[in-house]
Amino acid sequence: MKVCPNCFSDTEIKGLISTSEEKGNCNICNSKDVHLLDIKELYDFFEELLENFQIVEDGEPLRSKIQSNWSFFASRGTATEILNSVLFEISSEIISSDDLVDYTSEIKENYNHWEIIKEELKWSKRFFINTAQLEDLGWDGFFNTQYELKSKDLLFRARVHHMSGLPAISTSDMLCPPKNKASGGRANPLGIPYLYLSDSKETTLYEVRAAYLDELSVGTFKLKGGIEDLRIVDFTEDTSLFQPTMVKDTIKARLLREKISIDLSKPMRRYDSEIEYIPTQFICEFIKVQTGADGIRFRSSLDTKGKNIVLFDQNKIECTKVTLSKITSLKLKAIDL
């Protein structure tokens, strides 16, 4: 069996197959005049991949599990054909793409440890958490998915005015509050201010929960002159599964980041306790120390198209202008509970 780039959605494996010198028609996805690679060349990768799954009674079909978590193949049909062909040739307890599977206990214990850490930080061990255990689990290497914030990139931050008719807030006042006035947030502890920004003006309006007819100051930010880029740990990136010799760590890291990302994005409700912030404050501190990154990026739960960026040091960025804005329309949606 030979496969082509169009059999897959994963960018890394598509790139590998595209380097093949052989070209022709693909019998799997019916693509014409494409690069072809004998599936035998991928047996080692698939064997390594399948070692991370175990058969369980209440599991999910293997093809569905891989597709729902990773979108690895171009389609479920393609996944079925390729997996069944590979499973016939390699050594695995799984013999069919229909077999019900889940991740191995080792992988589940790794990402589920986040729930244990959350409870410890909130209710039993706040300042003497066992970080050595996290390093043993490999967490110190799981936050290397980073992107570079460039000098050309613009970011935004909004502040709602407490009354109408006020002028726009000055550029200097759009930065973090002073340490003695910095309250705890989703990423920063009390007294340690981080700068919360969004990648669009629309997203930052949602993030400050602006109401109808509210007047706001919206600041535009960019890196200070002389700073070419900042390294940001990215909780929004879809990591490629095709990482030969590193598949297990790739799965562990991706699943852990996804669980943490949910908590980073979760909006705080009026009746929530600030204790709920502590686990994400901890993981941001862990990232800052372990990776040396300048901040984090995560998805906005209030604006599904937007992303938020938190910078650990505001001195690397500046507010270049502030625009006075007013909310003229608002759309709310409720669901029955």
Rank of each mutant, 00 (worst) to 15 (best):
E12C: 05
I13F: 03
K14R: 15
G15E: 15
G15F: 14
L16R: 13
L16P: 03
I17N: 03
I17C: 06
S18Y: 12
S18F: 12
S20N: 13
E21H: 13
E22A: 13
K23L: 09
K23M: 12
K23N: 14
K23D: 11
G24L: 10
N25D: 15
C26F: 10
N27S: 14
N27P: 00
I28H: 07
I28C: 06
N30W: 09
N30S: 14
S31P: 02
K32R: 13
K32D: 12
K32G: 03
K32Y: 08
D33R: 11
D33P: 11
D33G: 04
V34G: 01
V34K: 11
V34S: 10
H35T: 05
H35W: 12
L37C: 08
L37Y: 12
L37P: 01
D38S: 14
I39A: 00
K40M: 08
E41N: 15
E41T: 09
E41W: 04
L42H: 07
Y43C: 06
Y43V: 04
Y43D: 08
D44I: 10
F45W: 15
F45V: 03
F45D: 06
F46Y: 15
E47F: 15
E48M: 01
E48Q: 15
E48N: 14
L50C: 08
L50R: 10
L50F: 10
E51H: 12
E51Y: 15
N52Y: 07
N52L: 03
N52W: 07
F53Q: 05
F53E: 02
I55M: 05
I55P: 04
E57W: 05
E57R: 15
E57F: 10
E57L: 12
E57C: 11
E60I: 13
E60L: 11
L62S: 06
I66F: 02
Q67L: 01
S68G: 02
N69P: 00
W70Y: 13
W70I: 07
S71L: 08
S71A: 08
F72I: 12
F73W: 07
F73S: 00
S75V: 01
S75F: 03
S75Q: 00
S75L: 05
S75R: 00
R76N: 08
G77C: 00
T78H: 02
A79C: 04
E81Y: 06
I82H: 01
L83E: 00
L83M: 00
N84Q: 04
S85I: 07
S85R: 02
S85N: 12
V86Q: 05
V86M: 03
F88V: 07
E89I: 04
E89G: 01
E89F: 10
E89C: 10
I90E: 01
S92W: 07
